[in-house]
Design a protein around this nucleic acid. Structure first.
Lengths: 223, 223
DNA sequence: CGGGGACATATTGTATGCAATTAAAGTCTT
DNA sequence: AAGACTTTAATTGCATACAATATGTCCCCG
């Protein structure tokens, strides 16, 4: 039997739609406030309304879109206040993870974190923004994992993806790379020294500074 | 003209099912590990499979049930490790909120918190467990609100609800009421003194102790 | 007597049709 | 001409039918 492109994996259509629509939102194809009409999405992706509905419901529970009964779904548009809350929550969560890392990371984990941070130095000198962005994600993921609390890690990672679209241009700001790297250094040192308070503070400062740079960006290009 | 309770019932069937099935799980009607078959649920609640599916998906995203593609849905059974993670995450979140309270509660909020705590003294002396449980929820809710971060508050409140069934019997343990009240006292003092570190520590200890008492309970009555 | 495989059954995933509700356009009255 | 009511179009909510897949059973073979 000839199997067309449809049978690549056992993921359901709704699963794939969640990914596709998420990408659409993150890429700007669907802008905040845009109406996500079930029939149009179904046609666009070549499926029926049923899996589209399921995907939209899941996106709603993750906060990427907002659905009101019988009134349809729109891409979530975050008010500046709400956005600040999300950034603040993420900063606190990451700081908490860093604190737990300082307390409970295994020697191997500490070593890997140190190595990873050292390796990022190269990316900074080369001004390899894309490489840094990707390594940065890995760095923070290591922090989540080092907290040894899967649920905290889930929450933090979820928040990070959700805030991704609002952070894209950040690392392209002049001098942001070396600064981020230096801040990472403070976090790593504190964790290696098992200084919980310092790790918390350093991470809180780091993520909050990223937030600041976002806000300056947002002010320059409102809406 | 006559627009009294327009909010009467715009809830969808799926909305109601989420509530019903949640109650069923929390009340023990559906035990962890039980299979939640779409057709049976549809018949039981007198609806079609469509809203049942939607409700199950939402419950899955809240963590109350687990769904695997083409393999159906079962009531989530938390392993002891997973449960410990959830309690740990809640402890950290509440501690973070307490820390933020110490830093940023308004004078009015501090006053209200102090008053509320003082009023709980009466419930302790009277050994009014139900009253204390309810006042306890209000106490922690004030802490969430005092952090001035709606998203953190949402996460913390969600976790608290999810863990509710595992905490029910706790306050009935001998001597738990006065002890909890004393721990609250430490938190309140630290917040009133604007001592962020102490507030964090006191809340972390408080919630972790509650967790301990749960674990002793769970060990005594396994499954 | 045990194991592997084909078949049967049950359950989920998807599509489609209909009903209910909302938002909007148009009409009528004052 | 402005506002309110009626009507109309569009979209969501729900039900049902069909398709695809996992699970359980039975038989055959070793």
């Amino acid at each position: 039997m000839i199997v067309l492109d449809d049978r690549a994996d056992d993921r359901t259509r709704a699963d794939r739609l969640v990914g596709d629509v998420t990408d659409g939102i993150l890429s700007g194809l669907f802008a905040p406030g845009d109406r996500l009409d079930e029939a149009s999405l179904a046609e666009r992706y070549g499926v029926s309304r049923t899996p589209v509905r399921e995907a939209l419901r899941r996106l709603a529970s993750s906060g990427l879109v907002e659905t009101r009964p019988r009134r349809g779904t729109v891409v979530a548009s975050l008010t500046p206040e709400r956005l600040a809350e999300l950034f603040g929550a993420m900063a606190e969560l990451e700081a908490t993870c860093a604190r737990l890392c300082a307390l409970s990371m295994s020697p191997v984990e500490r070593r890997r974190l140190e190595d990873h941070h050292a390796a990022m130095e190269t990316l900074v000198s080369a001004e390899d923004v894309d490489g840094f962005v990707s390594a940065n994600l890995a760095f923070h993921t290591q922090i989540y994992a080092g907290a040894h609390n899967g649920h905290l890690a889930e929450i933090a990672a979820g928040l990070r993806t959700r805030l991704m679209p609002y952070r894209r241009a950040q690392f392209r700001m002049a001098g942001r790379l070396p600064r981020s790297h230096a801040e990472h250094g403070a976090v790593v040192s504190a964790i290696l020294a098992a200084d919980a308070g310092a790790a918390h503070g350093a991470m809180l400062r780091h993520v909050s500074l990223v937030e600041d740079s976002f806000e300056r960006l947002a002010l320059r290009r409102p809406r």
